[in-house]
């Protein structure tokens, strides 16, 4: 990790390190609170937690500009927070309250935010990829220099829409970053049981696309790879695919008994978790001090409490609004 200071274009400052750490901790504590609220039945439906994978959303978002677009999956709380959507609005969405970022209509799997160009929250695996291709196409046609980043899991790689999108983006030289979060399990099916070729970057390379594989547990590696990819894309060199190797510490969703993997495997990954490792490194190198971490934890705890209070105080949309939001005119 220490080589990150001199290697590549990324120069770390104390502020930057604190920020990366803070953003990952925000996601972690938010997700832990969501799990708790789920058992209290405050949050219902499917709930997919990002615990263990925080470094990817945090590192990639560092490389984005405000005018860029993000397309994410149903495991997108972390992306939403890292992108800058307020924790309170995201939590209210978890509750289904009309103060939520999608007015409560979406819930955990459908977080949207126009202000940060956050296009979901897509719960059809692979379904967000063509959308990202189209956003990239619109940018190219209109001469914008902005980039669309599309997050998806390794499970999506088996979908036809992945292959169609890889081909279209490469064929049309579109400004899209394909950020594949490989946590090695599509729900309960391990990669080797679903892919004949488990080296995912080779799939993108087959479409003539620049592709990399990166340690997704190392936030600095993630950020550096994302920055390099964005520079490549902004220079008009076409789309980039990055596989971020990661691991999901929690169940797929709250209904998952995790029969498909050994507890020891989970523990092994947890021991090298992205926050744990980065925090240790930051303390060892003297970038941050124990007091900084305590301060971050206190701030985040207060932010989470405020988000929960905001969601609790939120209101239910009246039944009379049931059919609202289907179209500009009723169809």
């Amino acid at each position: 990790m220490t080589e990150a200071q001199s290697n590549g274009k990324l120069v770390l400052s104390r502020e930057h390190v604190l920020n990366l750490l803070r953003e990952m901790i925000r996601i972690r504590r938010f997700e832990e609170k969501c799990a708790e609220l789920y058992t209290l039945e405050k949050i219902r439906g499917f709930l997919h937690l990002y615990i263990g994978e925080e470094a990817i959303a945090v590192g990639v978002m560092e490389a984005l500009s405000p005018e860029d677009a993000v397309v994410a999956t149903y495991r997108e709380h972390g992306h939403a927070l890292a992108r800058g959507i307020s924790m309170a609005a995201v939590m209210a969405e978890m509750y289904g309250k009309q103060e939520g970022c999608s007015r409560g209509r979406g819930g955990s799997m459908h977080i949207f935010d126009a202000a940060t160009r956050f296009y979901g929250g897509n719960a059809i695996v692979g379904g967000g990829l063509p959308l990202a291709v189209g956003l990239g196409l619109a940018d190219k046609m209109q001469g914008h220099s902005r980039v669309t980043t599309c997050f998806f899991g390794e499970g999506a790689v088996a979908e036809g829409e992945f292959h169609e999108s890889m081909n279209l983006a490469a064929l049309w030289n579109l400004p899209v970053l394909f950020a594949c979060e490989n946590n090695y399990y599509a729900m309960g099916t391990a990669l080797q049981y679903s892919e004949s070729e488990t080296d995912l970057k080779r799939k993108a390379e087959a479409y003539g696309m620049t592709a990399h594989s990166v340690d997704g547990m190392n936030v600095v590696d993630v950020e550096r790879a994302a920055r390099e990819a964005m520079a490549h894309i902004r220079a008009g060199n076409g789309p980039v695919f990055i596989e971020f190797r990661t691991y999901r510490f929690r169940a797929h969703s709250m209904f998952d008994a995790q029969l498909y993997r050994e507890k020891s495997e989970v523990e092994e990954h947890k021991a090298h978790g992205p926050i744990k490792e980065f925090r240790s490194w930051a303390l060892e190198t003297g970038f941050v001090h124990q007091a900084d971490i305590e301060e971050i934890e206190n701030e985040v705890a207060a932010e989470v409490d405020a988000a929960v209070a905001f969601a609790e105080a939120g209101t239910w949309e009246p039944l009379s609004d049931l059919t609202r939001g289907v179209g500009a005119e009723a169809t």
Partner: peptide, 15 residues
């Protein structure tokens, strides 16, 4: 699916 989705994305993107 790919180009219909791309049409949706392009519409979202201002086209």
């Amino acid at each position: 699916s790919g180009f219909t989705g791309a049409g949706i994305g392009a519409a979202l993107g201002g086209m």
